[in-house]
């Protein structure tokens, strides 16, 4: 039954998730997907890392999406992440002015990825973070996690999610400050397995 009956009062059942598979390459990644920050913005941060499987092997076919608030903690409302040229149909890239808050990047052959975005501001009760959604061949349902940036220890200590985790698990959600960039590895399984989230 693929026509969903919305006439009744109850909730309708969801469409099941499936893996992204290995062949999304012409469809989902786009030039500049990882460069979310407007050009020359002083609050730009670079976050990079590796995605690894249960044996520690890098994933050359994972797709990462990052979604975050602007430095003032506001939700970005601008479209134009995938801005196109109506003549050629090709990608123009972001306009370098507006902040869409959303980025998409494929891991390279080493399982490495990066995004350059704006340092997120705090919202609600949480310490500032970037929301992350991970897709990969072999992953039947995508995985959500968060990248918290180090620095404000008081804010991290008060964060409602981080407070619930033991020290080892908590550490998987906090990027490491490398000076020029932040390092955030994603371990799908095994030693140092990243904390993944389920929203209810």
């Amino acid at each position: 039954m693929t026509r969903i009956d919305t006439s009744g009062p109850g909730r309708v059942p969801p469409t099941p998730s499936h893996t992204v598979g290995p062949f999304y390459g012409y469809a989902l990644p786009f030039p500049g997907g990882e460069d979310v920050a407007p050009l020359g913005h002083p609050d730009t941060v670079t976050v990079h890392g590796y995605v690894r499987d249960g044996e520690g092997a890098p994933l050359p076919d994972a797709l990462i999406e990052v979604w975050g608030a602007d430095p003032g903690g506001r939700v970005p409302r601008a479209d134009g992440s995938l801005r196109r040229d109506p003549a050629s149909g090709g990608y123009l890239g972001r306009n370098g002015v507006e902040f869409t808050g959303w980025g998409r990047v494929q891991t390279d052959a080493d399982g490495h990825w990066y995004v350059r975005t704006l340092r997120p501001g705090a919202r609600g009760n949480s310490a500032p973070y970037l929301s992350v959604c991970v897709f990969a061949r072999g992953l039947l349902v995508h995985l959500f996690t968060r990248i918290y940036l180090p620095g404000d220890e008081a804010a991290l200590a008060a964060d409602p999610l981080l407070r619930r985790l033991d020290e080892e698990r908590r550490a998987t959600l906090i990027a490491r400050d490398e000076g020029a960039a932040y390092r955030f590895d994603i371990r799908l399984q095994g030693e140092g397995e990243t904390v993944f989230l389920e929203y209810q």
Binding site: T19, D53, G54, E55, A57, L59, A136, R137, G138, L139, L140, L143, L161, R164, L165, R169, L188, Q189, G190, E193, T194, V195, F196, L197, E198, Y199, Q200
Partner: peptide, 14 residues
């Protein structure tokens, strides 16, 4: 392909 690519720890509910 799912064997090495699924978390063993339960997801943390939010």
């Amino acid at each position: 392909s799912s064997v090495l690519r699924h978390p063993r720890q339960p997801a943390v509910a939010i």
